[in-house]
C-alpha cells in the first residue's frame, strides 16, 4: 500500500526551490503559525474551505446545502465562513456553487499518485538539472508518504529537495533523510521567546534538529532560509545571531534571505482569517542587500531570494 498524504498543490516549473526547473509538492499541515505566512491554506492537515467575494453572488446555496450546517454568513466581515469543527469535507457546497466562488484547498493522494505526477516533468529536470522539492506546510509531519515518494524519486534518478521548518520529531526527520539531495531549513529568530511570539512555538527543537542533521552521516548540502519580515525579525542583532549559528554548520551551502511579501493577503480574505500584518510593506532591495552584507561580513555565503 502506498502511503497517503494531505496534499495542498503541485507547482510545476518552479526555479526557486532548488536547482533547475522543479516540481514542488506542497503538503498540508504545519506546527507553526508564522505571522507573515503567505500560505495560510497550508496550516491545517484537513481540507480548507473559503469563498472568493469577487465572484460570489450571495445566493446562499452553499449555506442551504451544507448537511452539517457548517457554513455561516458573517455580517460584519460580509463573508461566508466555515466552521471547520463541524465540516465533514463532503464538498457539496463546491458542487452547488455555480459561480465558482466557493473554493477548497487540499486533497488526499498516495505517494504512487504523486510520483506519477512528478515523473511527467522528467524532461524539464533532464535539461535544467532540476527535480522534485517537497514543501509545505511541514512535510516531515507526513513522514511515511515523504519517505516513500523521495525514495521512488532517488531510485529513478530524480533529484530531491525538501524544505522544513524543523519543528518536528527528530525520528520523522531521520526517517526521511537518506533520500534527500538538498535540504532547505527555515530559521526565523534566535531568541526563543520572540520566536514563540511570532511563530507560535519556541526555537529549541528547531535548532536542536538542525544540529543533529548537520552532525549526521549524509552529505547533502543545507540551505538555510531566513524570511526577512520588517519589524518582526529583521533587527540586525537577530540576523547576526542567526548567522553566528549557521557559521557552525558543516553542511551549510548558503543562506537565502527571503524578502517579506504580501501575495497571501487575498487567501486570508477568502479563508476569512485575520491577517496581523495588514499594513506591513515589503522590504526594499537596498535593505535586503544591507542585511545580506551583515552576513557576508561574517564570511557566510548569502543570496537574496530563493
Amino acid at each position: 500500500m502506498s502511503a497517503a498524504a494531505s496534499v495542498l498543490r503541485i507547482e510545476k516549473l518552479s526555479s526557486f526551490d532548488g536547482d533547475g526547473l522543479r516540481t514542488v509538492v506542497f503538503l498540508k499541515g504545519c506546527p507553526l503559525r508564522c505571522q507573515w505566512c503567505s500560505t495560510p491554506e497550508s496550516h491545517e492537515m484537513k481540507t480548507d474551505f473559503g469563498n472568493d467575494k469577487k465572484k460570489c453572488t450571495g445566493c446562499f446555496e452553499c449555506v442551504n446545502t451544507c448537511p452539517e450546517q457548517a457554513i455561516n454568513y458573517d455580517i460584519k466581515k460580509e463573508q461566508f465562513t466555515t466552521n471547520m469543527e463541524s465540516c465533514s469535507d463532503c464538498k457539496k457546497c463546491i458542487d452547488v456553487c455555480l459561480e465558482g466562488s466557493r473554493i477548497f484547498w487540499g486533497y488526499t493522494a498516495t505517494a504512487d499518485e504523486i510520483f506519477k505526477e512528478v515523473q511527467k516533468d522528467s524532461i524539464f529536470y533532464y535539461h535544467s538539472g532540476g527535480g522534485v522539492t517537497i514543501s509545505g506546510g511541514e512535510p516531515f509531519l507526513q513522514k511515511n508518504f515523504v519517505r516513500e515518494l523521495l525514495k521512488k524519486c532517488v531510485f529513478q534518478g530524480v533529484n530531491t529537495a525538501i524544505e522544513t521548518c524543523g519543528h518536528v520529531l527528530w525520528e520523522n526527520i531521520k526517517f526521511v533523510l537518506p533520500f534527500v539531495d538538498t535540504l532547505f531549513y527555515d530559521l526565523k529568530h534566535m531568541e526563543t521567546n520572540r520566536h514563540k511570539k511570532i511563530t507560535g512555538v519556541g526555537n529549541g527543537l528547531i535548532l536542536e534538529n538542525l544540529k543533529k542533521i548537520d552532525a549526521g552521516p549524509q552529505n547533502f548540502p543545507i540551505i538555510v532560509r531566513i524570511p526577512v519580515i520588517p519589524t518582526v525579525n529583521d533587527e540586525d542583532g537577530n540576523i547576526r545571531d542567526l548567522g553566528e549559528f549557521c557559521r557552525n554548520l558543516k553542511k551549510l551551502k548558503e543562506i537565502q534571505l527571503l524578502p517579506y511579501h504580501r501575495f497571501g493577503i487575498e487567501t486570508y480574505r477568502k479563508l476569512s482569517m485575520p491577517y496581523d500584518l495588514e499594513t506591513l510593506c515589503s522590504p526594499e532591495k537596498e535593505k535586503m542587500e544591507y542585511k545580506a552584507a551583515l552576513l557576508q561580513d561574517m564570511g557566510l555565503t548569502v543570496k537574496v531570494g530563493g
Binding site: L13, S14, S15, F16, V228, P259, H261, F263, G306
Partner: peptide, 10 residues
C-alpha cells in the same frame, strides 16, 4: 508566469 514566480518568504 509560473516559470519564475517572485519567490519570497512564506
Amino acid at each position: 508566469e509560473s516559470i519564475t514566480p517572485l519567490k519570497a518568504a512564506g
